[in-house]
């Protein structure tokens, strides 16, 4: 028996909105530790890694490890039926081929449930090695989304370069070039507005705009985003999901041909 209850169903909806650009379908691995998802996009350029801790749920029970393969378009349809303030309860029997989502309104005056068919997905899991990153940048997630959106107009790639002076985002293309430089700013009153850089050594890497833009669909999940970079290693773009876990995106840097 698997049962997970989340008072803020909108959090799960935001997670879904954040990954549905990249993934058509995905396996949710449920265990007593919580719900995990790891999947590459269809081009195998980026990797999505979601971790929702069991103690972040309002109720969590998982008697037996369970892998639920879901079509994310269908899952999106189910969550479209939920109200913004609804509580969601996910339930599945052991070895079941369906999962049930029950939505309850805050006042308990409306209860709806939707049963969705599960899929058998043959998904490979990749082992992600621990990396000592050359630089870790934390910045407002809205600012990151804005910069990626702005610079995407100029080219297909963005160079992210980080030195002790700050972080620079650059793009170039047919119409010209664009550069955005951010200095470190620590706002003790408003931590979420700070830009902080933890630098071991300067690094500059090139990434495809298309994927960076997809990652920023996770912006509503978190005030801050963490970018971890190292030469010849995928970029990690991490959004903390308050009290529940995190959503990470990995993107392979572009390399000289």
């Amino acid at each position: 028996m698997f049962e997970a209850r989340l008072v803020n169903s909108s959090t799960f909806r935001k997670v879904l909105d954040a990954i549905k650009d990249l993934l058509n379908e995905a396996s949710f691995d449920c265990s007593e530790n919580g719900i995990q998802l790891q999947a590459m996009d269809s081009s195998h350029v980026s990797l999505v890694s979601l971790n929702l801790k069991s103690d972040g749920f309002d109720k969590f029970r998982c008697d037996r490890n369970l892998t639920m393969g879901m079509n994310l378009t269908s899952l999106g349809k189910v969550f479209k039926c939920s109200g913004a303030d609804d509580t969601v309860t996910m339930k599945a029997q052991d070895y079941a081929d369906t999962v049930t989502f029950m939505f309850e309104s805050k006042k308990q005056d409306k209860i709806s449930d939707y049963e969705m068919k599960l899929m058998n997905l043959d998904q490979e899991h990749l082992g992600i090695p621990d990396t000592e990153f050359s630089c870790i940048i934390k910045m407002p997630s809205i600012e990151f989304a804005r910069i990626i959106r702005d610079l995407s107009q100029f080219g297909e790639s963005i160079v992210i370069s980080c030195t002790k002076e700050g972080v620079k985002f650059s793009a170039q293309g047919d119409i010209g070039t664009g550069n955005v430089k951010l200095a470190q700013t620590h706002n003790f009153d408003k931590e979420e507005e700070s830009v902080t850089i933890d630098l071991q050594e300067p690094v500059a890497l090139t990434f495809a705009c298309q994927y960076l833009n997809s990652f920023t669909k996770a912006t509503p999940l978190s005030n801050q985003v963490k970018l971890s970079m190292c030469e010849n290693v995928p970029l990690v773009v991490e959004y903390q999901i308050p009290e529940l876990g995190h959503l990470r995106f990995y993107l392979a840097p572009k390399i000289e041909e």
């Binding site: 590459m40 195998h44 990749l126 572009k254």
Partner: peptide, 13 residues
């Protein structure tokens, strides 16, 4: 520039 696969960086488990 070329875009490598993410699978080149991580091992199959």
């Amino acid at each position: 520039m070329a875009q490598p696969s993410i699978a080149c960086y991580f091992n199959n488990r």
